[in-house]
Design a protein around this nucleic acid. Structure first.
Length: 804
DNA sequence: ACCTACCGGGG
DNA sequence: GTGTACGGTAGGT
């Protein structure tokens, strides 16, 4: 019989000494299914070898003999050249790595580091989230999941599943003045939000009229209830905000304390945790989508906020904010079981709801990326740009009969990192205020160069076209007879995107928008990928050629514009800013069209926009190139600012507050004089020691034992002092200090807050190292050089003093 | 100039 | 699990 299902996640297990692929999915009527398929064999490639060379090779691992079970002889392409290659099969997926290590000294071993389940998706041309069909029989197995033994599985259409999302968020208690630590502070409540479901569970009772609050008797009961809710709700996607880094690891630590297993997998398995910075929490058969992970990796660049906390992200992406509560009071409220806990339940639910809305918002984009890249959502939503590109290329390589190159070894990557090359062309603006600015830019500049000039690691310096024209100012050329692998796939991406954009003109389908965004994401990352030190398809001469063509095209536009009587204000890589003066906007458009007539292939100049006013700052930093620093106002009054970043946690509150206030005055009130005045007042208050002590306290976390520090930073010096005073300072302690006056190093001038009196702080340090750095770039954008203004003020005071 | 430690997100 | 990976900044040396 045949079974249709939407594929969500994949896995494999070993049964009777051979691997069985497991495909978790949903039937068309929404039932959970696990399709099991035998017969997919692990294999790898040996380049420039014959079957007889490799057939007898064995290795042993813990006493077991590992061997190549059979071979096939093939002709394969490797960087555009044909080779003979042996496809070597093994019994178990893990055998591949053992044989690879054994053979890599004698042979060029390829494709021996690709996870078995990912290999399956690539080879079978099965895309997660799409509708698939399996031919086989249901197997008698207990439980809520339908098990189905498949003889063959294939994809039947591009239709994507409509997965059910359940968002959750945990709240914990904490000790005064620090973040919660799982060794000591319990989880006190867990909130859920689904499409028609909301709930907050907590384990201390209080009076409330909230209908979604449910009480249990202990933290252990809370964790068990958490598991039960997931079992009842049967989500396809479980979503959290930073749940890879906080909620799941925290829950695990607390569950371990009570010896509770977080076995919420479809097959009854526990959550699997990754380690280190890229820690992730994986649930078998259910997609764990950490909204934060995807947003910071893939969409952060298109957002204007520079901090990615839930409140900032929700306010920019949803126009909503978190409920605000006072966390300082939580320990007391929790201890006393006060009715004020109700506010925390509301806070908890709101966070879960915002997470749900964000998950729903990013879902179309994630779905499209999954369909392009061809790997499961759990993986794709955690991939960096280079990984997205690489998995897409690995999927497409088989169509070209190309072998997937190996990842570079350590020596190779570190050597690659030392190589630099010239980037885009920057035409520096003269600082000032300008009127009537027209911005033209190349539509997908680098992708269209790659396609138009056939730039690809397999077409470079080919033997068949030695007389081909070389890239501008480069010594290499690209084949003119055969289209390259990367040039072809990028052309597909760009053409598909343009087709979708045409369709979008006629319809407002949300999926179309997401699809073209996803295509753009992958296409735009291709250039960076070829220059990325850890890339399989790394190609330095390719990226050098791409940027050299880029500089050539933008310079051509600049020269032409000047000849036509436009004044060129600024240009950077792919865009040109023209000041109209006596020219009209129509003339600018005509100029653009004329340029387009002369451009080859996919190259195209576009009309980006018109801005009535703009402010430009030229910022040459220590001989480096000019940085992108400007602010533009469009006809709707929207301000576009480029080139400054906000302060971090370990800066003093006074610096944070001043920056926030000044950003507000400039962006909302558009009054730079007022902003400057505000800064001056703040600096004056600093000078007169009028800033309260708690606004100059800097807080830094001690990350390890004091003894294991080599360099003694200010907070380490303070930690030592605290220890001498008999206070315990374990790793993780938040060290608070104030910098006082003196000529010594900063660390010698750091004091415990309770040691210093009000006003006993170093004005110069807080002025020059805290407040000014946090605002100077903002002022540069509107044309004020804060350091000089202050020096000028000081100078004039000095002048006045001398005159007397 | 180079090296080392820290932050981010989370309560 | 046929593994797998940050990127930028401040302060010290």
């Amino acid at each position: 019989m045949k079974l249709r299902f939407y594929l969500l996640e994949g896995n494999y297990r070993i049964i009777n000494d051979s691997p069985v692929i497991q495909l978790y999915g949903l039937t068309e009527d929404g039932k959970r299914v696990c399709v099991e398929e035998e017969g997919f064999e692990p294999y790898f490639w040996v380049l420039d070898a014959e079957p007889k060379d490799v057939e007898g090779i064995t290795a042993s691992q813990t006493g077991r003999e590992i061997r190549i079970v059979r071979t096939e002889k093939h002709r394969k392409m490797h960087f555009g050249k044909e080779h003979s290659a042996v496809k070597a099969f093994t019994r178990l997926p893990g055998d591949v790595a053992v044989l690879r290590e054994e053979m890599k000294k004698m042979f060029n071993v390829l494709e021996a580091d690709i996870l078995f389940i990912r290999r399956y998706f690539i080879d079978k041309k099965i895309t997660p989230l799409t509708l698939c069909e399996a031919d086989g029989e249901p197997t008698a197995k207990a439980g809520k999941t339908l098990y189905f033994k498949s003889k063959k599985t294939w994809q039947v259409s591009d239709d994507a599943a409509k997965p059910k999302i359940l968002a959750f968020d945990i709240e914990t208690n904490h000790q005064e003045g620090r973040m919660p630590v799982p060794e000591e502070d319990p989880v006190i409540m867990i909130g859920f939000a689904g499409e028609n479901f909301r709930k907050v569970i907590t384990w201390k009772r209080f009076r409330t009229s909230l209908d979604y609050v449910e009480f249990v008797d202990s933290e252990a009961a809370l964790i068990n209830r958490f598991k039960k809710v997931i079992e009842e709700q049967k989500p396809d996607i479980i979503s959290g905000y930073y749940s890879d880094g906080f909620d799941f690891p925290y829950l695990k630590a607390r569950a371990d304390k009570y010896k509770i297993s977080l076995d919420i997998g479809i097959d009854g398995s526990a959550i699997k945790y990754g380690k280190g910075r890229t820690a992730s929490a994986q649930i078998t058969g259910i997609t764990h989508l950490d909204v934060f992970r995807f947003i910071t990796r893939v969409i952060s660049r298109s957002l204007s906020t520079s901090s990615y906390d839930l409140n900032s992200i929700a306010s920019e992406m949803l126009g909503e904010t978190k409920k605000s509560v006072d966390f300082e009071k939580l320990p007391g409220i929790w201890e006393s079981r006060s009715d004020e806990l109700e506010a925390f339940c509301e806070y908890n639910l709101k966070d879960a709801e915002l997470t749900l809305k964000l998950a729903q918002k990013i879902l179309p984009g994630v779905t499209e990326l999954v369909k392009i890249v061809g790997q499961p959502m759990f993986d794709v939503s955690r991939m960096s740009f280079s990984q997205l590109v690489e998995w897409y290329l690995m999927k497409r390589a088989q169509e070209f009969n190309e072998l997937i190159p190996n990842k570079p070894g350590h020596g190779e990557t570190s050597e690659r990192q030392t190589r630099t090359y010239m980037g885009g062309f920057v035409y520096e603006p003269s600082p000032g205020l300008y009127k009537d600015i027209t911005v033209l830019d190349f539509r997908s500049l680098y992708p269209s160069i790659i396609s138009t000039h056939n730039i690809s690691p397999d077409t470079i310096n080919c033997d068949c076209c030695p007389e081909a024209r070389k890239a501008p100012s480069e010594q290499c050329w690209f084949c003119q007879k055969k289209k390259g692998f990367i040039a072809t796939v990028i052309e597909d991406l760009v053409k598909r995107r343009r087709r979708i954009k045409d369709m979008m003109a006629k319809s407002e389908d949300k999926m179309l928008k997401a699809r073209q965004e996803a295509l753009k994401t992958v296409a735009n990352a291709m250039y960076g990928y070829m220059g990325f030190f850890a890339a399989r398809w790394y190609c330095l001469p390719c990226v050098k050629s791409i940027t050299s063509y880029g500089r050539h095209y933008i310079q051509t536009v600049i020269n032409e514009a000047k000849q036509q009587g436009f004044s060129v204000l600024y240009a950077d890589t792919d865009s040109v800013f023209l000041v109209l003066d006596k020219k009209t906007r129509e003339q600018a458009r005509e100029f653009m069209e004329k340029i387009n007539m002369s451009l080859p292939g996919m190259m195209e100049l576009e009309y980006e926009g018109f801005y009535p006013t703009g402010i430009f700052v030229s910022l040459k930093e220590k001989g480096q190139g000019a940085k992108k620093r400007y602010a533009l106002i469009n006809e709707e009054g929207t301000i576009k600012i480029r080139g400054f970043e906000t302060v971090r946690r370990n800066t003093a509150p006074i610096a944070k507050e001043t920056q926030e206030k000044i950003l507000n005055i400039i962006l909302k009130e558009r009054n730079k004089e007022k902003a400057l005045e505000y800064l001056m007042q703040t600096l004056e208050k600093l000078r007169k020691k009028k800033i309260p002590k708690d606004k100059v306290v800097i807080q830094t976390q001690l990350q390890k034992e004091i003894s294991s520090y080599d360099a003694i930073a200010p907070h380490v010096a303070i930690a030592k002092k605290m220890r001498e005073m008999g206070k315990p300072v374990p790793p993780g302690t938040a060290i608070r200090f104030v910098v006082v006056q003196g000529k010594d190093r900063v660390r010698d001038r750091a004091r415990l807050p309770e040691e210093v009196k009000e006003g006993e702080y170093d004005t110069d340090y807080y002025t020059n190292n805290q407040v000014i750095p946090s605002v100077e770039k903002i002022f540069e954008v509107v044309g004020y050089n804060i350091k000089e203004i202050i020096r000028g003020k000081y100078q004039s005071r000095l002048d006045g003093f001398l005159k007397k």
